[in-house]
Design a protein around this nucleic acid. Sequence first.
RNA 1: GGUGGGGUUCCCGAGUGGCCAAAGGGGGCAGACUGUAAAUCUGCUAGCUAUGCUUUCGGAGGUUCGAAUCCUCCCCCCACCA
Length: 428
Amino acid sequence: MNCFNELKERNFIYQTTDDEHIPEILNRGGNVYYVGFDPTADSLHVGHLLPVMAIRHVQAAGNIPIVLVGGATALVGDPSGKQEARPIMSKEKVAENAAAIKGQLAHFIDTTEGKAIFVNNADWFGNMLYIDFLREVGYRFSVNRMLTAESVKLRLETGLSFLEFNYMLLQAYDFYVLNKGHNCTFQLGGQDQWGNIVAGIDLVRRMSSKEAFGITMPLLMNDKGEKFGKSVAGAIWLDEKKTSVFDYYQFWRNSADGEVEKLLNYFTVLPTDEIKRLGRLQAPEINRTKEILAFEATKLAHGHEAASRAYLAACAKFGFADPNGKIETSSSIKSVVSESGSIADLPTYRIPAANFANGGIWIVKLMTDSGLCNSSSDARRLIKGGGAYINETRISDEKATVGENDFQNEALLLKAGKKNVRRIVLES
RNA sequence: GGUGGGGUUCCCGAGUGGCCAAAGGGGGCAGACUGUAAAUCUGCUAGCUAUGCUUUCGGAGGUUCGAAUCCUCCCCCCACCA
């Protein structure tokens, strides 16, 4: 299947600036295109994944992606799609975050020399003089027109600082620089980026007399119209120090029935006809579809090994959806065989055995220390509400303590609700 | 610059001296039901080894036995006018 149709079929395309020519240009390959990321955190989260997957598909068709980290623009803060202004970050923090994000992207796209280009717009904005920018770029923009941009109109209600208002010019200038320096002719972005992308295309035309194109992607919402990718402790991060591989797997595994097909299209690279078939499965079988989704998505982010372990750990706990392998799939999940008690791969908290010496450890403390609960008040609430378990036994006394005799083979299972687990392991 | 209206907990939004850790809704968590789903119903939703104590209503002071509420100064936002 050609690149454009692949994107279309998988629903990556919300709008294009040129429906007539873009498919052909994209399919031909050899284009340089860019996608921007704001390095506002030191890890990507699943909310960033849609553009990441889009880059992957377009790269696979022989195009060269430029990954732009907005080292400079993050210092300004894009108002698009935001109700409120964002806090301004320090330059050091931004640089640190940019490096971390680059590392994570390597899991999803080919980052070898010549296959992808990494740039930081601080490199050209860093030393720019305000007057020069105004003279070179500023006079080419009409405020009247900028005010008609959706992203600006939205914020006109609640207030928009001049700093943020400039964001559109900065992003447009990025496009111009990349077009000039790397012959970049495409920009991909979220649907809220439309105004910024179009501004960039205009700027490229005015300053370089070159043609450029843009594609926007839909904003991901769940069935309830909420923003995708938030859960228990906020965002689902790609950094396993922030979100364990098991929890990452579980995030996908717990998707709603009605969303599985959509998510498979976006976040896995399984063939689209297979996805259609898997998405149609009903009642119990749909759970196999969810396993496949979770496995494939986890495999992309953390590798086959880690994904297999998370899968087996989850199944050890909740059971296999398709134990006999009746449902066909091209996913490598089918070659993952359960051999032993993979329950060892549940998120684990290690604690010195000596800590249990004097009458054990208070249950509330153990739940917070292991990261199952955010605070001891939180843990107390959980216990009062009947959601705390030790080795599958509900704990109803918030004063309870855990002693060494609660451990079997140096390990114990602590649960907050049915799905949040922490394996506590004694070490000597 | 002027006039008026605002800034409340994760979000929206009530609260104009003690009954306020602060109504209601949303979101989130847990329980029941299930399929690790959705819907529904129920409970919880600042922190603390906790019948109490500590921090929280834009910021800093002040009045008071007692302040989200009253006073002073400051910061920020919105609307209109100039």
